[in-house]
Design a protein around this nucleic acid. Structure first.
Lengths: 338, 338
DNA sequence: GCTTCTTGTCGAAACGTTTCGACGAACGGC
DNA sequence: GCCGTTCGTCGAAACGTTTCGACAAGAAGC
């Protein structure tokens, strides 16, 4: 395997000239550059990664810690992992995958052996030991998700409040005056991440701002409970004509079934929006409008922030990614009578 | 950050002594070793990865290429990725994740820059360009899955023939004399991987060996078709009393529903086994016996083989992993009458 | 025609390890 | 008491880059 000495010899220049020609960090004469390029091609030269890491200040590798918790939805999880890897490649970075049981040891190992330039932390929970570790390690890092204590950390997450606001706006703009939010089970609000609360608060606040009625209920995952909960919500007076669901895939489907079972149709009788799903709602019957959690958006930004930390151009901060609305026809004007 | 020179200075020895003490490659005096250990702890020393890679012959990193195809079942895919990472750690290896759109370029890049010591190739299809690339790269590699041309490659896969045999044996041992295999849609057999064929052949051969009747039918994914197919199969004479399903999760569920719809109960009227599912069948109603595809088994073996290639102790070969039977009570003796 | 700046190139010194060869000391065999 | 081992340690040479400082040659400023 050819090294930089071989290239230098073949091109008839010194190795530093080759290095500068390849990095472009100093001007190189036209003719010299051509000879070097030719030698590189001829020898199929590719710089040795270890030599580069040792001499340079960068390893061009990020660690990715992505715990697979029992409640994690695997397809979404995978999508985030791939989105990080893809985003990293845009900055010429590779991604080293740390497993869940290596969460803290692994982070310690790869950062103190200087194997990685920085860390991307996925699926951050409210009290995540990885957040404290990252802080104490003093390594460039970007968290996807917002822990309780963000002091000194760079975090990226969807703007859940704005997402809820977007859902409210869409319904109110369509003419709805009474809305309902079907949320996660109580347990999720008590001790999970903080985004369900942020979504709920955003929903209630925007509804108040727009001067419409809004209710919030937490629903358990089982279909019978979903049916009861929906009945309770729709029997209110005035009955909501627009519903936002912020829950997992099963609840969404159960809600749609319960709506159909009551003889209601979407969107003629009831407008429905999926709030921040990690799954595809365009294949549902009926397809649901959604404000999805787009892995590429958060992950790209996180990688960007990690890279910028290496240049020292980023202060610790929480950065919220703007939500996007996906229309699939599940929102219409309320029936004139209602 | 402390380096080996610091450790040597604090311990009052030369750096080579420190290196040998840490690697254990040469005997070190009791007292000296203690002083070095203490210095390491005091300075919180951890060897620099780049220096190590450069001087040593190993980078202690494997590349993992894991394409996420449209027909990939994400939870299983994720499980394989994590299983590879976990297995690699047992050999003190880290895993660099290559994305699908980097499949060939990425492999080329990481291997010719000597960033990785070897490659683990996941989800290998019959005509997989990564197989050819790995061959031409001449880098240690282990494929999980078996391509059409295995010349010069190290491959690991579940022994699908043995798995089918295991299913047949279990049913025949329980007293069944007429069996049926419900397989994938025809398309899968025509141009997918080769394991559906291997499972089918194993099924038919073992049934013949055991002297029992056996039928094989391919079923499409939609529930109505599953119902028709099942009717056709069960109306045969003599009617099968043991059924093996080798298909995706939806088909398994549809089969169970169709069985229930015919008023049959599992295992009293019909014994059912899930052949090589990548999903959990113990939560089905009723729970299904299965011969699952266990990610950890194949992945551990693949990593082992990759490591052994580095020592030059492995010849190219296809290695089949023994299947395991998981009993969940869906097999019983056939009804005396039948 | 003098200095000053830019361009293009080179040599050499890092970066932090591993590992080879050497060498003195201790030791057992005979 | 000599010889061949084994033990414990050291110095020095890799490994393949990047980057600093130097320097010659030509361009530009005045």
């Amino acid at each position: 395997m050819a090294n930089i000495h071989d290239v230098a010899r073949v091109a008839g220049v010194s190795i530093s000239t080759v290095s500068y020609a390849l990095s472009g960090k100093r001007p190189i004469g036209e003719k010299t550059r051509r000879r070097i390029d030719e030698a590189v091609r001829e020898l199929d030269y590719m710089p040795n990664a270890a030599g580069r890491m040792l001499a340079g200040t960068r390893t061009r590798i990020f660690a990715l810690t992505a715990p697979l918790r029992s409640d994690t939805y695997a397809p979404a999880h995978m999508a985030f992992v791939l989105a990080v890897a893809t985003a990293a490649r845009k900055y010429d970075y590779d991604v080293l995958l740390l497993t869940e049981d290596e969460a803290t040891d692994g982070l310690h190992r790869v950062s103190s052996s200087r194997l990685v330039d920085g860390i991307i932390v996925l699926d951050v929970s409210l009290h995540d030991e990885r957040a404290d570790l990252v802080r104490s390690l003093g390594v460039p890092a970007a968290l996807i998700g917002v822990p309780a204590d963000t002091e000194g950390l760079v975090c990226v997450d969807l703007d859940f409040e704005a997402a809820a606001g977007l859902a409210v706006d869409r319904l109110v703009d369509a003419g709805h005056r009474s809305l309902a939010l079907l949320g996660h089970p109580p347990m999720v609000y008590e001790r999970g991440s903080n985004f369900p609360m942020r979504f709920r608060d955003g929903f209630l606040r925007r509804a108040a701002d727009r001067g419409v009625r809004a209710s919030f209920s937490m629903v358990e995952k089982d279909a019978p409970h979903v049916r009861t909960a929906l009945a309770g919500v729709l029997d209110a007076d005035p009955a909501p004509t627009g519903v936002v669901v912020h829950a997992d895939e099963g609840v969404h489907k159960a809600v749609l079934e319960a709506i159909a079972a009551r003889g209601l149709s979407v969107p003629d009788d009831l407008s429905v929006i999926a709030g921040v799903p990690t799954f595809d709602t365009s294949g549902f019957t009926p397809p649901l409008d959604a404000i999805p959690l787009i892995p590429a958006d958060s992950c790209t930004r996180a990688v960007e922030l990690a890279v910028q930390q290496l240049d020292g151009t980023v202060e610790p901060r929480v950065e919220l990614v703007a939500p996007k609305y996906r229309d699939h026809g599940s929102v219409a004007a309320p029936r004139p009578g209602s």
